[in-house]
Amino acid sequence: MKYSKKVLEHFTHPRNQGRIRNADGVATVGNPVCGDIMKIYIKIGENKKGEKILEDIKFETLGCGAAVATSSMVTDLAKGETIEKALKISRQDVSKELQGLPPTKEHCSNLAAIALHDAVKNYKDKLKKKK
């Protein structure tokens, strides 16, 4: 079991790490038994075409090297993208961009994409409630 250079790079220098105050959407995935917990915060804005985009995204993660790296990567992939595009980012995309993950890590530690999708859902749910 060895991590790729890309994983180590994202683990040592994670992108978009931290939290967003008054975030438009928040989601936490994982559980303490697995040992990996990821939380994604998103701030929604609009692009020139008037489409909703992820203006800002941040993460907090308690977990192994792969858990931190996948969280960092998903924020990298999603930042500035439209909501529709963000929802299409898959776990496979994340692991591919990271030059692959050790097989045992694919299951438990690659949940960041799900956290992203959940954060967008959380935003949409909030929007419905306002209406």
Partner: peptide, 11 residues
């Protein structure tokens, strides 16, 4: 600890 923030608090 900076990376993990306060995610454990929810549990």
């Amino acid at each position: 600890r900076k990376i993990s923030g306060g995610v454990m608090k929810e549990f």
